[in-house]
Design a binder for these strands. Structure first.
Lengths: 204, 204
DNA sequence: GAATAAGTGGACAGCGTGTCCATATGACCG
DNA sequence: CGGTCATATGGACACGCTGTCCACTTATTC
């Protein structure tokens, strides 16, 4: 498993995000430079075309400096996304219903879809950059969504949830979202479609 | 739009597959060599890592010979898949129910899922190789699946099908199928999950 | 069998990768 | 304050793949 991000990635638990050993000030300055520059670069061009060289150039640092912390551009995008994903996880675990506990599984699934489409809409570049290819499935965040969806399925009384988890998460792949937007489907329409699906699937 | 495959790709119509202008015998021989070698190469290693050089070496031809007909490895995989996809399209248009016309939309959607999982199971390497990244959405085959699913949704009385088409096709992304298999979910379980979903979604 | 068109593959320049290492720069301590 | 050490930095290198060019070869046509 590659080290992704520098401050510990959003996993099952919500961590503090403080680095273990203190970081030299020049390192911290460069980390900030790199992340700020990467944000720009991922927004400016197709996220899957972004190279380490692009980011290094934009940040004004050498490539080897990037490699010190991040093995590839996807890790840098993941680091930028980390904070947002951590917030969403927090809301799913302890937030108000219907996102947090306390609502019916179908409402919670719909709310999850709503939050995810919102995240995708705001940070599509970064998600595209972070989840290149099958890397998506290896992410800590993906593991979290899996556990969440699975528990909703079980709570709704679905007897064989295992064949459905990836199916329900598949529409949240950034390429799928991007393609829908490209075809003129709005975020609202996408969320409505997913809400309708949530209710048809999990209503008693 | 890149030229993909040599014999005209499976699009909306089922074409004959005969080349327009006659091909020189050495060209035909090399085409066969290339396709046979590519089949091996895609099966042998991660399809997304296959390079033009790999295929050229395996086929015993120069790289420029490959570039003459195919712009990238994905096109070669697409050419290999073309025949299978064309057969499935034929069955969807004119085959027996429930795959072909004559069954209820929910049964037809389930049958479509069954046929697609079968295709994915048999030729996963090739689909992974052909649909790298967002290339998936640009293929003629994907356009066909779109039209098919959309017509089933309309027939089932869904008022806003546009927000659902990509959602229903998303689970058929080769990466998703691969991930499910990697997690120990069998083809049958996947097909059952999709069948259950088809019925929940499209039953009156 | 000559003329013509099509096919072939060696070679080249360009780009991104991942790593190494000499140098520079904070951090710590006496 | 200054010396020492660990860490951080970035230029440089070798490698692999890409995409194209072009001189040469081979099949087809007349």
């Amino acid at each position: 498993m590659a080290i992704r991000g520098g401050q510990g990635e959003a996993l099952l638990a919500v961590t503090t995000g403080q680095p273990e050993v203190k970081e030299r000030v020049d390192a911290a300055r460069n980390r900030a430079r790199v992340l700020a520059a990467a944000e720009q670069v991922f927004a400016a061009k197709d996220a899957r075309q972004v190279t380490m060289e692009d980011i290094a150039r934009a940040a004004g640092v050498g490539r080897a400096t990037l490699y010190r912390r991040y093995p590839d551009p996807a890790s840098i995008a993941a680091a930028l996304l980390d904070e947002h994903e951590r917030q969403l996880q927090e809301q799913l675990l302890r937030g108000e219903p219907p996102l947090g506990p306390g609502a019916t599984p179908s409402d919670r699934l719909a709310a999850f879809y709503g939050a995810m489409t919102s995240l995708l809409d705001r940070h599509l570049h970064l998600v595209l950059g972070a989840e290149v290819g099958s890397a998506r499935f290896g992410t800590g965040a993906y593991g979290f969504w899996r556990v969440h969806v699975r528990s909703l399925l079980v709570e709704a009384g679905v007897t064989e949830p295992n064949g459905l988890i990836e199916v329900l998460l598949a529409p949240l792949a950034p390429e799928v979202y991007q393609e829908q937007r490209r075809r003129g489907v709005s975020r609202e329409q996408i969320a409505e479609g997913l809400t309708w699906m949530s209710h048809r699937l999990l209503m008693p």
